[in-house]
């Protein structure tokens, strides 16, 4: 590992200034991804700006009924928070489906959003990788890519984004707050992560010198029936092969009033199923309708040689979760998880 300087930031401004002054600097949250990548030589920061003790560690209700989650709230605390469990069960479930108890105790909201892909070639300095070193090629496209993207990939990169949490945020219409020490802005969670296109080295829309300061969960999706379901190679402590986050509100007569549907592990970003949502809105909340809408969404899939299994897997997960939400009796609309 390359030697590096260390700064424990006391304020967002101090952190942003340090990032701006040192192009080789990186924010440090819980370190569960960054330290791993530094050990592998993938990340070689000259300065670590420790943001983990910034006063951004609370979950609070705002006057308009939305809920603001600070960037340094740990994944385990967020998953356990009563406001999240009561109003946004899909978020709690997604967090709990990720990593391990130890990792969730360290991982932060900001770091989870900004975690890098688990593409094994990205982590292996001996392989070409356009995301790690632009212009070198992509070892996955014709190589090992069973876990890779089926939607929205490019000639340059076929990696997926590994976060479970981000999939729930996309389905909930959450917003990501950014701060560069002078100005703040926010983006829909769904548009925070990018498709790879010609610039796979850029995972997100964050600008150099900007920090994630928090995430806002909107009042509009609070307390709607919602659930997360994840398929993986083992029952726990494994990344998703495919996952789905769904938020569904139906009227008394069984018409879809609101639907938010996002897939994980299918693309370079949480894949918001906008076509399926449009097809469902105002129509019947039946298994048939869910299946038709989800299949329509997945028509855009372009599987690689060895990951075609993801398309039916994602279809079945989504139809199952939506059907369960439509038939759930209780207000929070939780589904039973089988693992």
């Amino acid at each position: 590992m390359k030697p590096f300087g260390y700064l424990r930031a006391g304020t967002v401004r101090e952190a942003a200034e340090a990032l701006a002054e040192h192009p080789g600097a990186r924010c440090l949250g819980g370190g569960t991804n960054l330290v791993d990548l530094m050990k592998l030589g993938v990340e070689r920061p000259g300065l670590l700006v420790d943001v983990s003790r910034l006063p951004l560690d609370t979950v609070e209700e705002l006057p308009d009924g939305s809920v603001r989650v600070g960037a340094t709230v740990r994944n385990s605390d967020l998953a356990a928070h009563p406001l999240v469990r009561d109003r946004y069960p899909v978020l709690s479930q997604a967090l709990l489906a990720g990593a391990s108890g130890q990792l969730r105790n360290a991982a932060t909201t900001g770091g989870n959003l900004l975690q890098r892909t688990r593409c094994p070639h990205f982590q292996d300095l001996s392989k070409p990788c356009n995301k790690r070193t632009p212009g070198t090629g992509c070892a996955a496209r014709e190589g090992t890519h069973r876990d890779h993207a089926v939607l929205g990939h490019s000639e340059q990169c076929v990696a997926t984004h590994p976060s479970d949490m981000a999939v729930a945020l996309a389905a909930l219409d959450a917003r990501v707050e950014l701060d560069d020490g002078r100005t703040t802005r926010d983006l829909p969670a769904d548009r925070f992560h990018r498709l790879p296109g010609d610039h796979p080295e850029r995972d997100t829309e964050i600008r150099p010198g900007e920090l994630v300061t928090g995430v806002v969960l909107p009042a509009a999706t609070a307390s709607l029936p919602s659930a997360y379901r994840k398929a993986r190679d083992r029952a726990s402590y494994a990344f998703a092969l495919a996952s789905v986050a769904a938020v569904l509100r139906t009227s008394e007569d069984g018409t879809v009033v609101h639907v938010g549907l996002a897939f994980g592990a299918l693309a370079h970003k949480p894949w918001r199923a906008e076509r399926a949502e449009a097809a469902l809105r105002g129509g019947p909340a039946t298994e048939d309708a869910f299946a038709r809408a989800v299949e329509r969404e997945l028509e855009a899939a372009r599987p690689l040689r060895d990951n075609g299994y993801k398309v039916p897997l994602a279809r079945n997960l989504a139809v199952d979760v939506l059907t369960r939400l439509a038939t759930a009796r209780n207000r929070t609309g939780t589904t039973e998880e089988d693992s």
Partner: peptide, 29 residues
Amino acid sequence: HPSHVTDPATAPGRPVALDAAEIRERLSG
């Protein structure tokens, strides 16, 4: 703190009873 196998309908803020499935899930790391 809930886990992946805790029934999501369980009321927050109360201790979670640990059965074998809970122990397995929580020790999966």
